[in-house]
Design a protein around this nucleic acid. Structure first.
Lengths: 125, 125
DNA sequence: CGGTATCCATTGTGATACTG
DNA sequence: CAGTATCACAATGGATACCG
């Protein structure tokens, strides 16, 4: 039953969960280039509500890929940074991005390498 | 507003969506090693219900990473294969897996590279 | 500015039973 | 064996308004 839990793939699930949030790749993308304040992130990612953005940042913080630092200044300043671990995701995000492009391309050409001449027996779709 | 939609990251979202199902990496993992029938997949992934497994397979098929072939034999036989595109995910799954391991390790050691000596001002957690 | 509290819609996942 | 139909339910995501 926990056969699965010992499979070498399980770590992949963890990684997917870490990246899985709707806006996490965007956040990472910007944090890869340096620290950012919440308001800056909101400007860069206009489609996300503040609540959700903060939510995602909290999760990323818990996952150890983002660091949150509070400066107790007059106008409160909060800066988010990618941790070393977070930065280590960069090549993966790049790979995902590259694959996403390929995906789009292949779907267009329908360059499917599998037995393409086989009888597709299902009627749906 | 659709600033985001033109960002190089958007493809990454697509990739994440393709891999995002609860059982998809497992399915891929097994299909990487060769074609499989539904019943075989169920045996390999005992924790998934048939309904959900079929659901995930359908999505993967629509995404072009899995191929479904029906043999109109006496006992109906259906074989699932990873397409060329699906196989192209292999290195990514590996990378995710590797990162997942590192993630676990780093969280243990708390080897966070970011300004670790900074005042963590939040009270929650 | 940065963040929380509510409330609500959508989605994903799952147990179960039934069909060709 | 392979698959669908129902029903249920938790997790996500989002809109809005309010707080220090």
């Amino acid at each position: 039953m926990r056969i699965l839990k010992e499979l070498p793939l399980v770590p992949a699930e963890r990684a997917l969960k870490v990246l899985g949030g709707r806006w996490k790749v965007y956040v990472l993308y910007f944090l890869f280039d340096g620290p950012m304040r919440l308001s800056e992130l909101r400007r860069q990612i206009p489609d996300v509500s503040q609540k959700v953005l903060v939510q995602q940042l909290r999760e990323m913080e818990e996952h150890g890929i983002v660091h949150r630092e509070v400066f107790a200044e007059v106008p409160p300043r909060v800066v988010y940074t990618a941790t070393k671990l977070g930065l280590s995701l960069r090549p993966i995000v790049s790979a995902l991005c590259a694959w996403g492009r390929r995906h789009a391309a292949e779907l267009d050409v329908l360059d499917d390498g599998s037995p393409a001449a086989s009888p597709r027996a299902r009627k749906r779709a």
